[in-house]
Simulated scan of single mutants.
Amino acid sequence: MRNFEITKREVLASISIIAVMILVGILISAKITERQMDRNEVYNKAVKIDSQETFSYGMRTNVGNAFVYGTLEALDPVSYPEIDGSYMYVEKIKKLYTMHTRTVAHMDANGNTTYTIETYWSWDYAGEESKAASTVSFCEATFPISKFELPGTRYIDTIYESGHVRYEYYGIGITHTGTIFTTLSDNTISDSSPFYEDLTIDEAVNRLEKGVGTTVFWIFWIIGTGVIVFKFYERENEWLE
């Protein structure tokens, strides 16, 4: 590694690197913002529906993009015999209590290093299975469950088969209220319509219109620019002399 003394020419070169990165970042950010504006236009033009009658009419008449507020409910709930309750979706994750080894370095007062092998135990993933309702209702209309992106799972229970085997259960409740963003056509909705649990139509629109793409991009772009400049300073840049 070089003697870390930054020269004046390296500082000037790094300023040029930063300027180029900012310029490229502005161009990319503008594209991200443009795409977000296009999406926002779609959201703003979407029909907003909060009644079963309007929802049914919209599917019959192919109204297109829509925000729909209603209750999502499993019509054929599922469960496992060993746990309580019924669910829209439930998963059973197997964990094994497994012994591992690792090498640990020890340095004495004289700077000499010795190594020992230590053992430790952890609960490790060992497979999973799941069950899901086949049909659900939304705004009193019946659909296959594949028509929805379901809410996130919540922890249910942990059951030990033995001291070295356990099963963790996570599930989605039978009933949820919220808003979907979908396309209404041919008497149905689009596949995998996202479901925004506990959000009204206006709250769902606000969340989608905010968009964090540009902010996230600039965070990573600035970090990346810093890494590039640091790596540049680390190099032996004789070509600048």
Results as ranks from 00 to 15, higher is better:
Ala74Met: 13
Ala74Pro: 04
Tyr97Gln: 05
Asn40His: 15
Tyr233Cys: 13
Glu238Ser: 05
Asn110Cys: 02
Asn62Gln: 10
Ala13Glu: 09
Phe217Ile: 00
Glu234Cys: 15
Tyr169Leu: 06
Ser190Gly: 15
Met107Asn: 05
His100Leu: 02
Leu184Ile: 08
Thr179Ala: 08
Val42Pro: 11
Glu41Cys: 09
Glu73Thr: 00
Gly58Gln: 03
Lys131Asn: 04
Ser185Leu: 12
Tyr125Pro: 07
Ile117Thr: 13
Tyr167Asp: 05
Lys31Cys: 15
Ser137Val: 10
Thr153Glu: 13
Ile49Thr: 01
Thr177Asn: 03
Glu161Met: 07
Ser14Ala: 14
Leu27Val: 12
Gly171Lys: 01
Arg9Pro: 00
Phe220Asp: 12
His106Tyr: 15
Asp50Leu: 04
His164Glu: 10
Gly213Pro: 10
Glu241Met: 04
Pro144Gln: 08
Thr214Ile: 08
Ile17Gln: 07
Glu118Arg: 12
Tyr169Gly: 03
Tyr160Ala: 09
Ala30Gly: 10
Ser137Gly: 12
Tyr169Phe: 07
Glu161Ser: 10
Val20Asp: 02
Leu72Ser: 12
Val216Lys: 01
Leu240Ile: 03
Ile117Asn: 08
Glu168Val: 08
Pro194Ile: 11
Glu53Val: 14
Tyr115Asp: 06
Gly224Leu: 10
Asp76Leu: 07
Trp121Tyr: 09
Thr188Gly: 08
Gly64Tyr: 07
Asn40Cys: 14
Val68Phe: 03
Ile32Gln: 06
Asp191His: 04
Glu82Thr: 01
Glu236Tyr: 05
Thr182Tyr: 12
